[in-house]
């Protein structure tokens, strides 16, 4: 094959074209830091990349969800502590009242304090965070506990809804305690006090009524029940404590997942800067060589020799 000026210039032009396209590609990779900006850059990486994107987004949200669950449980914890203290105080009063030697006026005073304890319990049961009632099940915009002074009963306006947060893919955690489970011993959410459990409010009313009726032994008879009812609160409290530590663990694993996912995303998407720079330099020197050659070729001509 003869090399004519047409073939030489065509090859040169083609080579310069190719090299400058390649250089533009590499420059784009370095400028954006990404080796994948279009589907055709690596079609096989699209699926894992998108899955990583979804997971990163979800991890951020799970972290927020877990934190919001933890906030809820921490808030609850304070109120459960109050309820616990109220129960202990009630037991003390009942034991003291049962000691005998108290006049009916004294018993009246004890009964008054018991009445105040009930108020305190109702306040705790009606605790709110962010405008929402903590112990109202799903019905969290309505005051759950109201004292009816005529019927001398406390009614529950909430429901038995169990609020679950999705804290990792497919894993939900219950972050609330319904008021009925807490105060009325309805742990299985059927609206009726479970056998062996207690409706704390009616327990209080029983004790109060006994003291008002000058019947301390009637109050003493309830001491065991008060202790059991307190256990009922403590059980729920420790359950939420377990949930909280589970959430804390979740939080730690989420931050690990986030790191892993970013790493995976980067592996598929980001340019290896060192390698990219090196090949850019290679292309540049090839380009320069080609340009120099172009200059040389156009200088050599048969016309200078004949």
């Amino acid at each position: 094959m003869r090399a004519t000026s047409t073939t030489t210039y065509r090859s040169l032009g083609f080579f310069l074209d190719r090299t400058s396209t390649r250089m533009a590609d590499l420059q784009k990779q370095i400028a954006t830091g990404k080796r994948m900006t279009r589907p055709s850059d690596d079609p096989t990486a699209i699926s894992p990349l998108m899955a990583a994107n979804t997971q990163i987004k979800n991890t951020e949200r799970y972290t927020k969800t877990i934190n919001s669950g933890l906030d809820k449980i921490k808030n609850m914890e304070g109120h459960l502590d109050t309820i616990n203290n109220v129960m202990i105080r009630m037991r003390e009063i009942t034991i003291a009242a049962g000691n005998g030697g108290y006049t009916s006026t004294d018993l009246q005073t004890f009964a008054d304090e018991i009445g105040q304890l009930r108020e305190q319990l109702i306040d705790s049961g009606n605790a709110q965070v962010d405008g929402k009632y903590l112990f109202a099940g799903f019905n969290d915009k309505t005051t759950p506990f109201t004292w009816d002074p005529v019927a001398r009963t406390v009614s529950y306006a909430g429901d038995q809804g169990s609020l679950k947060y999705e804290v990792s893919p497919g894993e939900s955690v219950e972050v609330n305690i319904s008021g009925s489970a807490l105060m009325q011993g309805d742990l299985n959410n059927d609206g009726v006090t479970d056998p062996g459990k207690f409706d704390i409010f009616s327990l209080i009313t029983t004790v109060e009524d006994a003291l008002l009726a000058n019947n301390p032994s009637g109050a003493i008879a309830e001491i065991d029940n008060i202790v059991t009812a307190n256990d009922q609160v403590l059980t729920l409290r420790s359950l939420k404590g377990n949930t909280a530590s589970r959430l804390e663990n979740g939080l730690r694993s989420m931050s690990q997942v986030a790191i892993d996912m970013h790493e995976m995303k980067s592996r598929f998407e980001d340019a290896d800067l060192l390698a990219t720079m090196t090949s850019l330099q290679q292309q540049e020197s090839a380009f320069q060589a080609a340009l120099t050659m172009t200059g040389k070729i156009s200088k050599i001509s048969i016309l200078d020799y004949i």
Binding site: M1, T4, S5, T6, T7, R10, S11, I302, I306
Partner: peptide, 21 residues
């Protein structure tokens, strides 16, 4: 295509050196 066109120009195209000679 570049290869083929170069081949074609090599055989059928004009070479300035050859024409000058």
């Amino acid at each position: 295509l570049v290869q083929l066109e170069n081949l074609r120009d090599g055989i059928d195209g004009v070479s300035l050196e050859e024409e000058m000679i």
